[in-house]
């Protein structure tokens, strides 16, 4: 225990929490350097070499049309038209390549976040112990001022896109866990009980009952994850993640109002698009989900040659 006597409170010892954490990060850097280098390379390849290349490969207008078609498929033609207008406005502001770089970063961060968050959420829903262990960690990740994460991330991953992805990841992960846990806990207890009563294995209960019934809530979580990722992706511009965030950082450095707003508006446009599309997927209102869900006609109905008899009970709300 240190008694440096430097705190303002009377006789309360100065606890060097910051120093300890720093020591921890330094230790990690010097001892697990290779692991971080590996992660760094992986994230770099995934984000910059693959996804960003893919997104910037077709002509901007062609990709805008593809985005619009996607929106039409998950919701309706109105969202498709809106998407086209929004995307063309990004092209008009000359931010297309930056927007695609940011989109790549957001998609990678979201993807990794979900791969971690959904299994953790499932475990937290199954066990109260896991749930109460995970909750404070989630709180810490979410409420710690976002910029604070940038410093240690840079020490571990150095300046660049991977640092941006990891900082984004930390910030956007919690809602994925929380919504998954909530979604599964909200599934009607009696339905799960019915699953048990007919002798389902835990795997059958999870994949045939709980996850399908939690999917709406989980999609709301995915939506939140993407929105947080987008807001953090801009902050990540300060650690060299490039894209729209990089433009914003540059605009602040050079007091360039025009550039700042053009990059900022492009972020807003991306946010609107991603929000509407993920929300529509969660609702399951579009053609795509209808196509996926279309039930094949039961053989009984096809072969039923007798007209609907009077002894068949009438259907309510049919």
């Amino acid at each position: 225990m240190m008694f440096a006597g430097e705190t303002e409170g009377m006789g309360i010892p100065r606890v060097a929490v910051g120093d300890w954490i720093e020591t921890g990060f330094n230790w990690a850097r010097s001892n697990l350097g290779e692991v971080f280098a590996l992660m760094r390379n992986g994230l770099e390849t995934l984000t910059e070499d693959w996804l960003e290349t893919l997104l910037t490969w077709p002509d901007a207008l062609v990709l805008s049309v593809i985005f619009a078609l996607l929106a039409w498929m998950v919701r309706d033609w109105k969202l498709g038209v809106l998407t086209l207008v929004l995307m063309v406005s990004i092209i008009a502001m000359d931010q297309w390549d930056n927007a695609m770089a940011t989109l790549a970063l957001v998609l990678v961060a979201t993807g990794v976040a979900l791969v971690i968050a959904i299994p953790v959420g499932v475990l937290a829903a199954k066990s109260d112990r896991v749930s109460s262990a995970v909750r404070p960690i989630m709180d810490l990740m979410q409420t710690m001022p976002a910029l604070v994460w940038l410093v240690p991330v840079v020490t571990l991953f150095s300046i660049g896109v991977p640092a941006g992805v990891v900082a984004t990841l930390i910030f956007c992960l919690p809602p994925g866990v929380r919504f998954t846990e909530l979604g599964i806990r909200q599934v009607d207890r009696e339905v799960v009980e019915a699953g048990h009563a007919f002798g389902s294995t835990p795997g059958q209960i999870l994949f045939r009952i709980q996850l399908p019934l939690a999917v709406k809530t989980i999609m709301a979580g995915v939506n939140q994850v993407i929105m947080l990722a987008l807001s953090m992706a801009v902050i990540a511009g300060f650690v060299g993640a490039g894209g729209l965030g990089g433009e914003v950082a540059r605009a602040i450095g050079s007091l360039d109002i025009a550039l700042g707003f053009e990059a900022g508006l492009s972020v807003v446009v991306l946010a609107i698009y991603l929000d509407r599309v993920t929300a529509a997927v969660g609702d399951g209102s579009g053609i795509l989900t209808k196509l996926l869900r279309r039930r094949r006609p039961a053989p009984e109905q096809v072969s039923a040659t007798e007209p609907a008899g009077t002894d068949v009970p009438t259907v309510k709300n049919a």
Binding site: E190, V191, A194, H196, F198, G199, P212
Partner: peptide, 20 residues
Amino acid sequence: RSIRREKISMVFQHFALMPH
């Protein structure tokens, strides 16, 4: 589980059907 599968079935108060 195998006893439940083969010997026992159950009907619930609030039906407990799977809406999906």
